[in-house]
């Protein structure tokens, strides 16, 4: 024999709240989904992104500056080397060899010029400075 179910009398305001929660849920159509997505995009776009964009800006500036410095350094190095070679190409032949030293010796007359000639020839015959 089954016992009769017990009936509980709840206060009116609690019943009212429970009835509000028990409302049927709306069906999520694609239109509703799109509206929610657009609202979220608007909301997050308005958020300040100062920290991330600031550090990115500094990184770009820093990279550009470093590239500029490296480029200037390399150009000056290359220019320096070429300038040295051009300076030693006394006869303008395009190569630095004994004929440049010979021309220097033939035209030199000031004291200490023999030292310049000897120094130039030392560079010409140096094995380390002249790869095979």
């Amino acid at each position: 024999m089954n016992p009769e179910p017990e009936t509980i009398e709840l206060p009116g305001d609690i019943v009212e709240r429970l009835e509000r929660l028990d409302k049927s849920v709306s069906v999520l159509t694609p239109a509703v989904d799109r509206q929610v997505r657009e609202a979220a995009a608007v909301h997050f776009a308005q958020r300040p992104d100062r920290v991330r964009s600031t550090s990115r800006r500094w990184a770009v500036v820093g990279t550009l500056a470093a590239s500029l410095v490296a480029g200037v350094f390399l150009v000056r190095m290359q220019t320096g080397m070429e300038a040295t070679m051009l300076a030693n190409d006394i006869d303008g032949s395009g190569v630095v060899d004994i004929l440049d030293a010979f021309t220097l010796a033939r035209t030199a007359g000031a004291p200490g010029s023999q030292a310049e000639v000897d120094a130039l020839i030392a560079n010409i015959v140096a094995l380390n400075g002249n790869p095979p």
Binding site: D97, I98, A101, F102, I124, V125, A126, L127, P132
Partner: peptide, 9 residues
């Protein structure tokens, strides 16, 4: 190897 050079005035 060797690089040898000389000149005369």
């Amino acid at each position: 190897r060797i690089i040898v050079a000389d000149y005369s005035l």
